[in-house]
Design a protein around this nucleic acid. Sequence first.
DNA 1: TGCATATCCTACAAAATTAGTAGGGATTAA
DNA 2: TTAATCCCTACTAATTTTGTAGGATATGCA
Lengths: 142, 142
Amino acid sequence: MLSKKTQYAFKALEYLAIQHGKEPVKISEISKQQKIPLKFLENILVELKNAGMLESKKGKGGGYMLKVSPKNINLATVIRIINGPIALLPCVSLNFYEKCKDCNEETCGMRKMMIIARDATLKILEKKTMADMIKGELTIEN
Amino acid sequence: MLSKKTQYAFKALEYLAIQHGKEPVKISEISKQQKIPLKFLENILVELKNAGMLESKKGKGGGYMLKVSPKNINLATVIRIINGPIALLPCVSLNFYEKCKDCNEETCGMRKMMIIARDATLKILEKKTMADMIKGELTIEN
DNA sequence: TGCATATCCTACAAAATTAGTAGGGATTAA
DNA sequence: TTAATCCCTACTAATTTTGTAGGATATGCA
């Protein structure tokens, strides 16, 4: 399951995706509109920024903006930044690989299954984007 | 990610699947062979038994056996028993559904995406079985 | 220059979950 | 009736998740 932090990240990105191309959006606005604890949200947005997904502007009139178009932000990327691995086992993770001891990777049956499951999941999560996510709710209020 | 407990469960089931049709297997044997802490393994096996996946026999010559054939135990079932939901969000889980507040399920974009991802994952995990998992390692030693 | 407005950084704390242990009870075979 | 084996309840330790506190840093504007 995705952590609450990751769900918050998606909600924040949704909000920013809808405002994409307009003025920067303040943390406090996102916090209030999407009901995310303010200081927690700060941490999340900094992480997304450090990962290159957002840009920010300080001072009056400042806030956060998407750095790239919603249609170029896929869900797998967001999950990896905030939540971590998508695979069900460390030894089949593409981005967070860890060898499992007491297991021959050539012959391990569990591993083979989990690779197939991972690929099926990734096929969706890497294809779907923030643009897909906000379809049908582009009208939060202008 | 699957918990260590779930990984232990799979290892234990693998071992039992390979012995399927023979004598009951003692907890202590599984523990030693698969390097799973004994008392922890006890808990796991009881859970699998209560879920109807194993049967047990007490006293001398006793132990655990699969209740059904390895080819009738799919991976999704095991994960649900020991690990919990397979879906990425509670509000899209088939077996552990929980309504999410502040979200209209009819229009929520995130929900739509997560349903698609869930179905892709389930398609694999519900089709693959313990029999698939032990293919190629039916020879632990007789 | 100086003040108000924002983001950014470090550190801590509380709550929840996961992982594992302890100790004895109940059942069965011989 | 004893040894072997699973079963049950409860606890503890470690780790992760979910936040909070408090100030540092940068920016726009008068």
